[in-house]
Every structure is written in C-alpha cells, then in structure tokens.
C-alpha cells in the first residue's frame, strides 16, 4: 500500500497558519512526521489559506523539499496552481486531480505529459458522481484512454472511485468497493487505484473507526493507494495487518515494526 499523507492542507488550522505566516518549521514538521509515520507521498493543498495560491503552492513545495525527498501530490482544483507546484517539484509528482470532464481532463493530461507526472483521476464528470458502478468505470476508462493517447503509461494513472460519506449515502460505499475491483481490470498493466479515504466518515461520531474499517475493506478489494492521515496509528496498523492477511509480505512477530523498516 502506498500511503499518501493528507496533513499538508490549508484547511487545517496549523497549516493555514504556516502558509499565512510563512513559517517553514510548521510545514516541515508536519512533512517529516508524516514520512516517519509511513507516508510515501505527501499531498500538498493550499486550500483557502492564501490569496495568491500560485505563490503559496510554490512556497509549500520548496519548503517541504528542504527536509524530505518524498514525492509530492500536487492537490488543487486550479490548473495554474497545479502547474506552479509541478514546476517546483524535484521528484516525479502526482497531479491531484482531474475528473472525466473533457476540457479539464485534456488540460491536466497535458500537464502530466509536460512534467512527467502521475495523474489522479476521479470517476466523476460535469454531470456529477454517477450512482452506479458502470458509469463510474466508464469515466475511469475515459480518463485512462485520454492519458494513453497522450503516451502516458497506464500505471502512471491513479483512479479514484470517489468516496462519499457513509452517513449521507449508505448505498454508495459498497459501490465504491466494487468500482475499485472493476477499475483494476481496465488495462494491462492495470491503473493504480486510490481513495481519498477520510470523506467516508464525514459526520460520523467515531471517524477513526469508520476510516480504518473502510480502508481495510478497500484493500481487500484491490486498493493500491490511499490519501489518509498516517499519524493515525490504529489506521496504519490496520492497513499493515490487512496487507499481511493478503500475503503481501512475509510474516514475522514484529511485522508492524518490520513494515516500517522495510519501506
């Protein structure tokens, strides 16, 4: 499992403070802690924290790269902000994200090609999030086809079945699991599957519990990557144990410690 750390997001109070006061230490501490906790990619999202989000993205990327060479996921709804992040990245980055909406898709595929970046695609389009598996998979295929035409390898495409809060749409979660399975059959090599996990527990009383069980179930359905809070130790341990049960690595009594050392 590839863990994408979600903590560098202007939505969070400390990060907002870091961005607004240009306090590198705040951002760098969060980056380092996530890497130590097992994140292999760090998501970077300016959020609502800055008026000039292009400059803020560039500053964030440069600030993080001063303390870690972990690859970054450049997260924004605006292509110019994404491009500013990609330009500053020293390592191969991940674009987070496109949808199946044609104009947006073409722009972001163009950026992925130009900067040799991976591309995360949400299985939704201008009409919204389909409420059936088939339509979501079709959007996934559309994203994949567009990227392939541009010469992007299929395993550089990361498809997200779209996670909705269980509290507000219970029928959506089984659909999400099934979609993960279907997306893996779209090409050879298969696209990667990814979820922005925490959305599943929006509004729930025990969010960590819902998050970790959802993650384990998604892993059992073939999930490759998840955008999560790696500092949630129970979540990480559940994830590692799920992978153990799927025979993804060799057991030993200290397998939780071993997993971190093996990274």
């Amino acid at each position: 499992m590839i863990v994408i750390g979600e903590r560098i997001n202007g939505m969070f109070k400390m990060v907002r403070k870091g961005i607004q006061e240009k306090d590198k230490k705040i951002i760098q501490d969060i980056a380092k802690k996530q890497v130590e906790a097992g994140a292999r990619i760090l998501d970077v999202n300016v959020g609502p924290a800055a008026a000039d989000d292009v400059a803020a993205m560039q500053w964030l990327v440069e600030t993080i790269q001063e303390v870690t060479d972990t690859p970054l996921s450049i997260d924004s709804a605006k292509p110019p902000v994404i491009e500013a992040g990609l330009k500053a990245c020293k390592k191969k980055a991940l674009i987070n994200s496109t949808t199946g909406e044609q104009a947006k898709l073409e722009t972001l595929v163009g950026l992925a090609k130009k900067y040799n970046a991976g591309l995360l695609g949400l299985c939704m389009d201008e009409k919204g999030i389909p409420d059936n598996i088939q339509a979501r998979v079709e959007i996934g295929l559309r994203i994949l086809a567009c990227a392939m035409e541009a010469g992007i390898p299929t395993d550089d495409i990361h498809l997200d079945p779209v996670v909705l809060p269980v509290k507000f749409g219970q029928a959506q979660t089984p659909m999400m699991f099934q979609t993960i399975r279907e997306l893996k059959t779209l090409s050879d090599p298969a696209p990667k599957t990814v979820v922005g996990l925490s959305n599943v527990s929006q509004g729930c009383l025990d969010r960590p519990m819902v998050n970790r069980i959802a993650l384990v179930m998604a892993i059992a359905n073939g999930l490759d990557e998840a955008i999560v809070d790696p500092m949630d130790k129970d979540l990480m341990n559940s994830m590692i144990t799920a992978e153990l049960l799927l025979n993804k690595f060799i057991y030993c009594d200290s397998y939780l410690t071993a997993y971190m050392k093996a990274l």
Binding site: I250, Y251, C252, D253, S254, T257, A258, K261
Partner: peptide, 14 residues
C-alpha cells in the same frame, strides 16, 4: 523458518 529469519533481522536492526 522464514518468519524467524525476518524477525531476527528486525531484532538486529533494533
């Protein structure tokens, strides 16, 4: 025993 093999490596690294 491959499990003990891995465990011992972890103990040594620790």
């Amino acid at each position: 025993d491959i499990n003990i093999c891995k465990q011992l490596n972890i103990l040594l690294l620790d």
